[in-house]
């Protein structure tokens, strides 16, 4: 991820007109969270519209570049990428991402696949997992702590994904979650994973496993 706006200078904030939501945007994205167009909590969709405004986008990009953040645009979502991030940090991120592979695998294996915009209750997923051995195994395979019941495990997954801004708890009462546009980010990463076999005829190649493109 290269800095495309290095020439904006340090006094950018004095020269450009930043939207008044800049602070809110920063507060969300600097935590590594996403701003999705279909998010409703805390006016997320409004923030998306603000960033999506071309004029604002340029100004915000220039502004955040100064503090070495780059706004990355996904399909209906935005997030920050740190410019010149250390490899060790990237590695750490990838490690923390690994559990999502199993979660996405589980979600994609459901009868009613969970996709962008899907609304579901953890209990529904737990029920389906309970009724389907394959799904149950997949769920049990996901390494999380609170695993005394399937429902709790699903809840924990939902909490994790909500924390990471991939889901949104839309209705507290009915415990309904909505899948946000940022879920595409997870899907994209999973899709860019290439699995290769160890051919065994080359001593230089690493052992079989996954690599990220």
């Amino acid at each position: 991820m290269e800095n495309t706006n290095n020439n904006t200078g340090g006094n950018i904030s004095t020269n450009v007109k930043l939207p008044k939501q800049t602070h809110d945007i920063f507060a969300i994205m600097a935590r590594g969270h996403f701003i999705s167009s279909n998010g409703t909590k805390d006016g997320m969709n409004r923030l998306y519209d603000v960033i999506n405004n071309p004029e604002n986008f340029d100004n915000l990009q220039a502004y955040f570049n100064v503090i070495r953040y780059n706004i990355e645009r996904g399909n209906n979502f935005f997030y920050f990428a740190k410019i010149d991030e250390a490899n060790s940090l990237i590695e750490k991120k990838l490690e923390s991402f690994e559990k999502y592979i199993d979660i996405i695998d589980l979600f994609a294996s459901m009868d009613n696949k969970i996709t962008i915009g899907s609304r579901f209750r953890p209990s529904e997923i737990a029920e389906e997992c309970n009724a389907n051995v394959r799904l149950k195994q997949k769920l049990q395979k996901i390494p999380l702590y609170r695993s005394e019941t399937l429902s709790n495990k699903v809840r924990e997954i939902c909490d994790l994904m909500t924390r990471d801004s991939f889901l949104e708890r839309e209705d507290e009462e009915s415990e309904t979650y909505k899948v946000l546009d940022s879920y595409t980010y997870l899907m994209d990463i999973v899709n860019s994973i290439a699995i290769y076999e160890d051919t065994g005829n080359s001593g230089t190649e690493p052992a079989g496993g996954i690599i990220y493109n």
Binding site: S37, N38, T40, D111, N112, K113, I114, T115, I116, G117, S118, R119, F120, E124, E170, D171, T176, K178, V179, L180
Partner: peptide, 27 residues
């Protein structure tokens, strides 16, 4: 599958109790 994805994405853009009644359950 594509059709369902589009419907989910579309419905997900709206509030749960939107007045157009664009709401679809996951199941």
């Amino acid at each position: 599958g594509a059709f369902q994805r589009y419907v989910n994405e579309f419905a997900g853009k709206f509030r749960m109790d939107n007045h157009f009644n664009f709401m679809i359950r996951n199941d």
